[in-house]
């Protein structure tokens, strides 16, 4: 099953602005891009052509794994607003 299929079972109220703010300069020189590997929602994707980290913040499950794993501890991370983000019914 793809991650998109899994995520489609979750209720979200997406915000219009991202609560995840990578420091793209740091990302350019980041070797591991480990945020991509730990994220349980496939939020991050390194775009090699554009030299940019794509952040599908609206899929975020608010776990905090990327914040702790980030190679250079440069990932700006906060909880979405109280009315926004993920809503688990069966957590």
């Amino acid at each position: 099953m793809t991650i998109e299929n899994k995520l489609s079972t979750i209720k979200y109220s997406p915000d219009t602005e991202s609560h995840l703010r990578p420091d793209n300069e740091k990302c350019k020189s980041c070797k591991s891009k480990i945020c991509q590997k730990v994220c349980p929602a496939g939020v991050y994707e390194w775009l090699e052509e554009e030299q940019r980290l794509l952040v599908k913040y609206e899929n975020c499950l608010e776990c905090g794994a990327c914040r702790i794993a980030c190679e250079s501890k440069s990932l700006g991370w906060e909880y979405p607003k109280g009315t926004k983000g993920v809503l688990f019914k069966n957590g």
Binding site: K6, P40, C63, I68, F88, N90, G91
Partner: peptide, 8 residues
Amino acid sequence: LLEYSAHL
């Protein structure tokens, strides 16, 4: 699958 979730 009813719901997928994640947590630390």
